[in-house]
């Protein structure tokens, strides 16, 4: 399961399209701002009572988000045990050095700049899916929880 944190509806459609092209869109949860993302991850607000043993296998995080921005979402995730080791890929338009430094500094696993060329974007999503969902061996805690509950 992938958690896509993205406020732009166009980007959401395009990302979904790219995921679908590579059959990665079986289960995608979408959060449209930072608060929604944290609510989902910590089982609060609209997501109260959610089965917290189900955690995303990959989080695609945009940096520029309403309410709570992407870096803050990442920072809070990394302070909580249940989300500390979840793979987070920052997927953003920004190529500013300070964003990259802050992103990695807060514990992002990857930093990918969204290419304008849609073909390149599709390729980037394909590679991300291939790497994080198939090739990469998840940390033990995450893997165990996944085997308990959901599937990809």
């Amino acid at each position: 399961m992938i958690l896509l944190i993205e406020d732009n509806a166009d980007d959401e459609v395009l990302t979904m399209r790219a995921l679908k092209k590579h059959n990665l869109a079986n289960e995608v949860v979408i959060a449209r701002d930072g608060v929604e993302a944290l609510d989902y991850l910590f089982g609060m607000g609209d997501h109260e009572g959610r089965d917290l043993t189900v955690m995303p296998q990959l989080i695609l995080l945009d940096l520029k988000l309403p309410k709570i921005d992407g870096l803050e979402v990442l920072r809070r995730m990394r302070t909580v045990e249940s989300t500390r080791l979840l793979p987070v890929v920052i997927l953003t338009s920004s190529n500013e050095e300070q964003d990259r430094i802050a992103g990695y500094g807060f514990g992002a696993n990857s930093y990918v700049r969204k290419p304008v060329d849609f073909n390149e974007f599709i390729d980037a999503v394909r590679q991300l899916g291939l790497y994080w969902l198939i090739l990469n061996e998840a940390p033990p805690a995450v893997g165990k929880r996944l085997s308990d509950g959901s599937s990809i």
Binding site: V13, L14, R17, T92, S93, S94, V116, D117, F118, F121
Partner: peptide, 21 residues
């Protein structure tokens, strides 16, 4: 320039992406 980098590119991506779609 941060806004230019982030915000100006976003609609471009949509234009390109949906044209492709």
């Amino acid at each position: 320039s941060y806004s230019v980098a982030h915000d100006l590119r976003t609609p471009l991506r949509s234009i390109d992406g949906f044209s492709q779609a």
